[in-house]
Simulated assay, not measured.
Amino acid sequence: MGFHTFDAGRADALEDRSRFRYCSAEELLGAAALAGDDTVVDIGSGTGFYTDVLAGVASEVYAVDVQPAMAAYYREKGVPDPVSLLSADADRLPLAAGAADVAVSTMTYHELPDDALDELARVVRPGGRLVVVDWTAAGEGEDGPPLAERFDAWTTGAAVDAAGFSVRRAESRRETFLLTAVR
């Protein structure tokens, strides 16, 4: 993990609705199994493209990105009421233990620091959920990061299990994978 971060100078590309072909709004919401009173941590939220989807259901969403420029872009775009922006490394979240019902990483797992899963296990309450959608190493590399910077669903699942979660679903698609787990 932790290869690089997305170039904030290209933030407009993250607002392209064609991104939903890799993970639709409905698929993300279904995987997260959100309830109206859930608190969500969106790791690597970027411009808020997927955060906005989560904010339509959850009562509180922490949009976490290591790059202040991404938060500035999101602020300028318009941040929905239930969203709080946090500039932080994913392995040092400014949240209390058990503060979140759900943690989501959408197309950012390959960018996270090595200790991020341990930190998410600290922040997600027992019984809480983790959703990871990312570019798969089993893909063709047509879009997304280079194949050498990607992980597959099974390698990610092993890391998620080692961090204290229990994988419930792991599937590989043409260019992405989807993984859900419970703490």
Rank of each mutant, 00 (worst) to 15 (best):
G2P: 03
D7W: 06
A8T: 08
A8N: 01
G9N: 06
A11C: 06
A11H: 01
D12Q: 15
L14N: 07
R17T: 14
R19I: 07
F20V: 12
F20M: 10
R21D: 13
Y22D: 03
C23A: 15
E26I: 04
L28I: 04
G30I: 09
A32F: 06
A33T: 10
D37E: 15
I43Y: 06
G46R: 03
G56I: 07
E60A: 14
E60Y: 11
A63Y: 08
A63T: 09
V66L: 13
Q67P: 05
P68V: 13
P68R: 08
P68H: 08
A69C: 06
M70F: 12
M70N: 00
A72S: 13
A72Y: 01
A72V: 01
R75M: 11
E76W: 12
K77Y: 12
D81G: 08
S84M: 09
S84Y: 12
S87K: 12
A88E: 09
A90E: 07
R92M: 10
A96N: 04
A97L: 09
A97M: 10
G98N: 09
A100V: 07
A100I: 10
Y109E: 03
H110Q: 05
E111I: 00
L117F: 01
D118T: 13
L120D: 05
L120F: 03
R122N: 00
R122G: 06
R125M: 06
G128R: 02
V131R: 12
D134R: 09
D134Q: 12
W135G: 00
T136R: 03
A137K: 13
A138K: 13
D143G: 07
G144M: 05
P145W: 10
L147E: 05
L147K: 11
A148K: 11
A148T: 13
R150N: 07
W154Q: 14
T155Q: 14
G157C: 11
A158D: 14
A159I: 11
G164T: 00
F165L: 10
R169D: 13
R174M: 12
T176C: 12
L178Y: 07
L179H: 04
L179Q: 02
L179I: 01
T180E: 11
T180V: 05
A181W: 01
V182H: 09
